[in-house]
Design a binder for these strands. Structure first.
Lengths: 363, 363
DNA sequence: CTGAAAGCGCTTACAG
DNA sequence: CTGAAAGCGCTTACAG
């Protein structure tokens, strides 16, 4: 009898190879891949080990053909969020492939663009939208989402509403933690650069800063707060303003890394060393934080995980809708990390003296 | 006997529906769809009519599963290339979906990591590797590729060899164009910050700078060249060095944006305005170029298109290998753009005077 | 918690 | 020129 020639061209391992290697059925491997809970831990581990050792990657075509469950979600981003974008993509793509759904990535430069793109995606069968800042904070985008009834999930936003979920860190707690850290270093006059007023996070970070001051019995001083807009340039101006204050701060905490980097630049122009003369801390832990010198002590947001979580939320919502139910927009909080690098130190001895006076005379 | 429930969720027509409607077998429909010639004209017309009337569209997942034409390529990246990453992803994913191939994205932090990851991917059926700088410039990675015989394509690299293709701009021409631009502004003493010596682009950019100087009849002066390593910090030192030179340059051209941004910082510390006292130009057009103030005049690399081109090259090579032939690694050149922003201007009037003297006394 | 069977929609390899 | 069979690699639906 003639042997039929195999049709396989790739020599990639399949689910059956994994099953054989792990001593289970393909079905069990499938369950592990899809993260189903009804698999014994021991079985799961054996499967995972086999997957790892064989270097198995599920065949997407086979998965989507078999599941007949093709979900497509869109990822919308605009220019200013370029710092987040790569991480959002990495996390989003990873989770999308895990759910075996398709992620369509679209850029929209202007606000009008966003509207057009969103409309086109929805017409093209996209059932959910992932949005990143600053797009997610634009009123027009929010209206659009509200009106469209398309489920959406915003990354790095605390603003959840009816059909829109949000994933973020707790901006208030993060700013609180950073301020407390600066205080613990011995600083008593701590400047703050406020973020752009039309992003919700700005107010939360400001509140965290103020409350940490209060908790330590330090005065909340208007003169130590300067308005910025999350841009480097605005940070330049804010820092000028804060460092021109009589009895200037020994530390400045900026609401993002761009403005913190600008603060370092201004400090240097004035001949101040960072951190020995001035402590400067940022927020976000973008690439800039480790580009500038000294590298910035800042708050790290787990963007990759946030993107993953947003995809999860969205997929859950889309599936629920297919079953006829509509979930409320949910807000998921992830943990931040305070990353200490080279831009913070105790205050200089000279102001250390002033500090005690300030501490006593505080209102 | 209980009827098994159907698994079909979409109600789209299939190849069998078309076959039934046209009174032929699914096989014949398949031939028509694929434009094979061995079908009678009459049969073909009947099939085409059925396709038309049913509104049939082939299922892509089924096609790629059945055709066993599944190509998987891997995208390897390491931390320092974060600036490129989002664009590489956007371009790479787009082209991958166009070719109906799968793109697996993997991060590898250390050089050893790269080796492990690459090995795992290859074992996992990945038939081609896309690599980004600085991974593509690491000798160890290059050895690995040479040894493995896996086709690869490097983005933003001019270094093509046997099984590895490369896509890049012409670094020499770009540096030449930028230098010429600075000269055309009236500058005669132009400093240059050299890039890290183990990236090939560094030497090419340096050569472009020098040749543009020569073309204009300007001296190539060692004192105006400072060594950097593509990091902000190294740019700080290089700029200090260049600005300490007696009869200091009126313009500094840095081999990347990080070092250009550092040069701006040093200029500001010394009380020099950019661009009225000092012109500063960069290379790459990363996010940093538009973050700092003034925004940098720089060379833009079309990373998205480079990623697309790299995917094309790779897919072509993989297909060729399946047919038994091996293509030589090719090098594809894409156009760069000189983006003029706010960091360049004619030299200050004072040095304008010196310039003429310098021009005359040049060796 | 696990597996055997059937099937997703198409194409390859073979036989007429 | 055409078709019956087998198979791509996975998941659903069912049965234990």
């Amino acid at each position: 009898m003639k042997q039929r020639q195999s049709r396989r061209q790739r020599n990639a391992p399949t689910i059956s190879d994994v099953a054989r290697s792990a001593g289970v059925s393909p079905m069990t491997v499938s369950r592990v891949i899809n993260g189903e809970s009804n698999v014994r831990a021991k079985t799961r581990d054996a499967v995972l080990a086999a997957i790892e050792s064989l270097g198995y990657t599920p065949n997407r075509a086979a998965r989507s053909l078999a599941s007949a469950d093709q979900i497509i979600i869109g990822l919308l981003y605009s220019n200013p969020s370029a710092a987040y974008l790569s991480e959002v993509l990495v996390g989003g793509l990873e989770q999308a492939s895990r759910h075996n759904i398709q992620l369509v990535v679209e850029k929209c430069d202007t606000e009008e663009d966003a509207e057009t793109v969103a409309a086109r995606l929805m017409a093209g069968g996209v059932e959910g939208l992932l949005i990143t800042p600053p797009l997610s904070d634009q009123p027009r985008m929010q209206e659009l989402l509200r009106a469209s009834d398309t489920p959406a999930a915003a990354i790095a936003s605390e603003n959840a509403y009816n059909n829109t979920s949000a994933v973020s860190i707790d901006d208030y707690q993060a700013a609180f933690a950073m301020t407390r850290h600066i205080i613990s270093l011995g600083h008593r006059r701590i400047g703050f650069v406020i973020g752009d007023t039309n992003q919700i996070a700005s107010g939360r970070r400001l509140a965290g800063y103020r409350d940490a001051l209060r908790e330590a019995g330090l005065p909340v001083d208007d003169a130590l707060e300067a308005q910025g807009h999350f841009t480097y340039r605005s940070g330049l101006q804010a820092a000028e303003q804060l460092l021109a204050v009589e009895d200037r701060p020994t530390a400045i905490f900026a609401s993002n890394d761009d403005m913190a980097a600008a603060t370092v630049a201004i400090a240097h122009r004035r001949g101040l060393d960072v951190p020995s003369d001035l402590t400067v801390c940022g927020f976000d832990d973008t690439a800039l934080a480790t580009t500038v010198w000294p590298e910035l002590t800042t708050i790290h947001q787990p963007i990759i995980e946030m993107a993953r979580a947003a995809v999860d939320l969205l997929v859950e919502e889309v599936r629920a809708r297919r079953d006829g139910e509509v979930l409320e927009g949910r807000h998921q909080l992830l943990d931040f990390t305070l990353v200490q690098r080279q831009s913070d130190a105790p205050p200089p001895a000279e102001s250390d003296g002033k500090r005690r006076v300030g501490g006593t005379t505080s209102v």
